[in-house]
Design a binder for these strands. Structure first.
Length: 196
DNA sequence: TAGAGGATTGAT
DNA sequence: TCAATCCTCTAC
């Protein structure tokens, strides 16, 4: 069952990041269906420096972060990697959750082909890798997550609080003290979590 | 309009 | 430890 708009439009982005663990991310790109269970996320809010929408500053790149919750935000990082985010909160508030790692579920053959590898090992264990495996690029920026190109589903199984680890976010040292926020969440012991 | 730098990755 | 690689933002 697809996750409803009301889930994405909650005002607490950190809570949403935590609750997205165990949910499933689907894409249907070029007629190929792929999906994976979310095992690692990070929260980003306009209130802190790590966020592209810091101080609610709107630019051409981050414009979709100011749409109401329930849209995708895909951007290019380091000139090489597409990173996939879920926009949250209400219109005009720049908040989003970065999906950092998945456990492959559907279309593993397709993912292996896209990653040019013969084994499913670690094909989705990192934010730049899972987008490639699922065929996500910037043409999927600003898509409505209740449509049929990219969407999230609730599997019904809940990840217990005792299985969720909170830690510092990765790669935002430039954010000063905001880099110390424990806004990265992952499932304890899961082998698909990105290594750092 | 030029220049700097980034929510990463994989190879050395 | 470092290069790949290009878009975005800022400053001039």
């Amino acid at each position: 069952m697809k996750i409803s708009e009301s889930f994405y439009q909650q005002s607490n982005v950190v809570k949403i990041a935590k609750e997205l663990l165990g949910k499933q991310l689907f894409t249907n790109v070029n007629g190929l269906l792929t999906a994976g269970t979310i095992v690692e996320t990070e929260a980003y809010s306009w209130k802190e420096r790590g966020c592209h929408a810091f101080e609610n500053k709107k630019t051409k790149r981050n414009a979709v972060m100011f749409l109401p919750g329930g849209f995708s935000y895909v951007y290019l990082c380091y000139g090489i990697h597409n990173l996939f985010n879920v926009v949250t909160n209400t219109a005009g508030v720049g908040e989003a959750v970065l999906i950092r790692a998945l456990e492959p579920l559907i279309g593993i053959d397709t993912m292996q082909t896209r990653m040019n590898t013969k084994t499913p090992k670690r094909i989705t264990s990192g934010p730049g890798k899972l987008t490639k495996a699922l065929g996500i690029d910037r043409t999927l920026n600003g898509k409505y997550l209740l449509d049929d190109e990219v969407w999230l589903e609730d599997s019904g199984t809940k990840v217990g609080n005792g299985k969720i680890i909170a830690s510092k976010r990765i790669g935002i040292d430039y954010a000063g003290k905001d880099a110390d926020l424990l806004w990265r969440f992952y499932i304890k012991g899961n082998i698909w979590v990105s290594k750092t």
